[in-house]
Simulated assay, not measured.
Amino acid sequence: MFRSALVILPAVLLMAGCGAEQTSDDPPTIGFVSQNTSRDFSKEMSEGFRAGAAISGGVRTETTGPDTHDGLKQAALLRDLATRAKGGIGLSAVAPELVAEPMAQVVEQGVPVIAVAGGQVAPGSGVHLLIENDNYELGRVLADAVVERLSADSAGKIVIGSNSPAMPALDLRSLGLRERLAERLPKLQVIGPLDTGRDLGANLNTWRRLADANPDAVALLGAGDVDAINLAAVHAEKSASWLAGAFSLDAKALQGVKDGHLFATVSAEHFLKGAVAGWLLAEHAKGRPLPEGWMVSPGLLVQASNVDEVVRRQATEESRLAAARPKIDELIGSADHVRPLDQAR
């Protein structure tokens, strides 16, 4: 059970903060600011946050976020939410450096803030807990899946694209991809990461151009969710022989795996990260200290062998929560998943 799991958390895990004041007539409000309200991955984090808070109980929740990736709008929404969510706020930063100052201001007001995803915590933010994947390692996971499908002496090109260059999480995925491919397939030329664009239509056209411009490519790999959707579409359009893979749990990406147009997609398990944040903040609002550091959340490689299971898991919020609960228990129950904040990658 969740409550018992945190009780056994080893004392070596650094703790910070104190519980928010509350009365039985006025349960505290906790909140979450997502990167956007339009993309599947961001919706999953918000849903997870609400689910995790509901497991703990005793709090109200409010989730918000800009319609699209907009760091300045996100900062304004954070300041506004802090006037109501006195019990604590989780924030998934579009650009960590843009929200560092408003995060620090909210923390100074006595509202605890957790960073959820975003790749890193910007210096000066005043935030001491990050719930995030090891994105560099996720890049290596996808690279190893590529290597399993190619011979050691394979020649040609691998093209890497990113729909959000300069976003820390995606940059780290791309770096892990590049370095692992260079290590294991030294005869291949690895190009990128190239900017494929966040807009769905522009991203599709970019991947079409990259496929046409690199007829000797053995793989086209994307670092983001939009990349996954459109790589599947381009692979189908061209009846391509090159491998296509990226990072997404969007329904179209999962269908791409089922249809054989994506050989793999990596899930950053955003629902899980949101759920852990919601549970921790709900417990903190009732008096339990927050841990400090980088809480390393696992990812999941989705391939033909497990895609049907993942599709079933993703069918409803209830099925996602049922699958996530053992992982939440594991994350909050052991210091083994917490590293120093400055090691986040």
Rank of each mutant, 00 (worst) to 15 (best):
H69K: 08
H69I: 15
D70I: 05
G71H: 04
L72K: 14
L72M: 12
K73D: 08
K73R: 12
A76D: 13
A76P: 00
L78M: 08
L81W: 01
A85W: 00
G87M: 08
G88Y: 04
G90T: 07
L91V: 14
A93V: 09
A95M: 13
A95W: 04
P96T: 11
P96Q: 11
E97V: 11
V99L: 09
A100K: 08
E101R: 11
E101L: 12
P102Y: 09
A104W: 04
V107R: 06
Q109D: 15
V111Y: 04
P112I: 03
P112M: 06
V113D: 03
I114C: 05
A115L: 11
A115R: 00
G118D: 00
P123I: 12
P123H: 13
V127S: 00
H128A: 10
H128D: 10
L130T: 01
N133Y: 01
D134R: 08
N135Q: 10
E137K: 12
E137Q: 14
L138T: 07
L138W: 03
G139I: 01
V141C: 06
L142R: 00
A143D: 06
A143M: 06
A145E: 09
A145I: 08
A145G: 08
A145F: 02
V146F: 01
V147A: 09
E148D: 13
R149N: 08
D153S: 13
A155F: 05
A155S: 13
A155R: 15
G156F: 09
G156D: 10
I158R: 00
I158Y: 05
V159L: 08
G161W: 02
S164D: 07
P165H: 02
P165R: 04
A166H: 12
A166V: 14
M167Q: 14
M167H: 13
P168H: 12
A169S: 14
L170R: 05
D171Q: 14
D171H: 07
L172F: 14
L172V: 10
R173N: 05
